[in-house]
Structures are given as C-alpha cells and as structure tokens.
Nucleic acid binder design. Structure first.
Lengths: 134, 134
DNA sequence: GACTAGTACTTGACTAATCAAGTATATTAG
DNA sequence: CTAATATACTTGATTAGTCAAGTACTAGTC
C-alpha cells in the first residue's frame, strides 16, 4: 500500500491533472498564465531566474516559455542596466490587457473546479497547499 | 487581481511543482509511479483506456508511457480475450518488486514534503483535493 | 447480414520542459 | 590587477505529453 503521505501526494497530482486541462484560456496555457501573473504584479519586470525559482522551473524552461510570449507581443525583454548578464521580462500593454481578460475567464473556470468546496474550505485548501514542500 | 478561486488553483499548481521534482525514485518518474499504482491493485491488469480516464491522460499518452515500461520489463501487455481491440497492462513480477521499493522510498519523500502538516491536516488536505474538479 | 456509429488503441507531427554543456558577465580572494 | 568561482542566461539533444488522423474491431439498426 502507498503510505498516507504518498496517498496525499497522489491526490495532489490527480487534482492538478483534473484542474490544468480546463484552465487554458484566450490562447494562454495555464503554465503561461502562471508565468505572467508575477509580471503583472511587478511593474518593472522580473528576472527570468527569479521566475524560475518561484515557479519551480529551470532557467531554460523560462527562456523557452518566454520566446512564444515575446513573439506574440505579450512580453518584452529588457536589458538590466545594473547587470549585463541579466534581463527583465516585462508585460507589454497588450499583454496586460490579454492577461486581465484571461484571468477573469480562468477565475470563473477555477470557481467551477472548486464548486464542491465553500469559501472557507477553499481558503483552507490554499493554506494547506502553501505548506507542501516547504 | 486573480480571484480567490484562481489563487487556490495557482497554489495547487505551485504545490504540485514543488512536490513532483522530489518524487523520482528508482529510475521511475512520479508519473510512472502514478501509472503503476493502479496496476498493482488490479491483479488481472488494467486497460489503457481506463488508466487514461483515471489519470486524466489521453489514450495516446498511456500508449507512450507504457512503451518504456514494457521495454524495461516492468509491465507486460496482454490481449483481452473478450475484446480484440483492447489490451491489458499487467505488472510483471519484477515490476511489482521495483514498484514496492519505489513506493517505500517515495513514501518517505512524501512525508518530508508534508512535514509541516500533522496527520490530521494531511488527511484533510487529501479530502479537499479529492473534491477539486469533481 | 450489411451499414453506421462508436470504442480501443496507435502513430506522426508538434509543444513543453528537462538536463548538460556553453557563453558572457560579475564577484571574491589573494 | 588577476585568477578562480559563481551567476544569468542560451542552446542542443532528449523525454513526456498533446491533438488529429488512421486502423481494427464491436455493437446496434434495418
């Protein structure tokens, strides 16, 4: 038998699998939305490396995820004045608009995913999830 | 701002990302373990199509996941006597042994992932996760 | 018993992400 | 100041998974 902890982690993977499929919106995958949200919150842009740590991706994963977003004019790369190795990924104006629309629609789908939970349970779930792997 | 539901789902994705990385064991990815666990519980083997539904994969995803497991002698394909379109994926004896070892080690890692939660909270998390996307 | 529709895969082309290795720049130690 | 080490990416090769189309069989209808 899987241990209790293993069962919890299997349930996490299953819930994730059920969720992700339904959260592609406005041509943005859920992974892309996850990448863009931190850009939306930092107006000066974010470093790819930071994003990698935050999202538990590799640096090369971020490089590759940014490429199509740049091509589509959603994100812009800027040089970092203070460090020539680094760069900043910034949401364009169009990107922000698109992301805002995407978040609204994804938010509705997310509520549907959580329809069996009331607000308190949802919050509780979020709190517990935030402790996983810390 | 992302809605509350969206925040919960983002937390789900983040927890999943933190978890999956540390659960590769004995040369089996966490995805492979997830695929093998239902085989372990059904001695007669399982149909790929059922597995696909259960794991929220596509049928072709299962086909492709099974190939390397067959090559490594962990899984065997059998014909389904009652339906010539279908097949059964069965754990080999060696596969069962390997999986048992993998589950033990993965179980330890899973406990470490959940170390900030007590047993009740873990169970609670599992229950809440089981409602997501239902 | 022949059609139609549906199911159980499989395969080709593609996307997303990994790892390992490479380039360029920054930082630290002597 | 110079050498060694570390950081911030980028790129090539590979793996996991998707979708769309195809093959083979089953089941239901007339």
């Amino acid at each position: 038998m899987p241990t209790d902890a293993m069962e919890t982690v299997l349930a996490l993977a299953a819930a994730h699998a059920r969720a992700v499929r339904s959260l592609e919106v406005r041509g943005l995958s859920f992974a892309e939305v996850r990448l863009l949200v931190p850009l939306r919150e930092a107006n000066g842009g974010r470093r790819p490396t930071e994003l990698a740590h935050e999202l538990h991706l590799t640096a090369s994963g971020v490089t590759r995820a940014l490429l199509p977003l740049e091509r589509r004019g959603i994100v812009e790369r800027r040089k970092d004045a203070s460090d020539a190795r680094a760069s900043l990924a910034v949401l364009t104006r169009a990107g922000r608009t698109l992301l805002d629309e995407a978040l609204e629609e994804a938010g509705e789908r997310a509520s549907r995913l959580l329809r069996r939970l009331n607000v308190g349970q949802s919050k509780q779930l979020q709190r517990l999830l935030e402790e996983v792997g810390r």
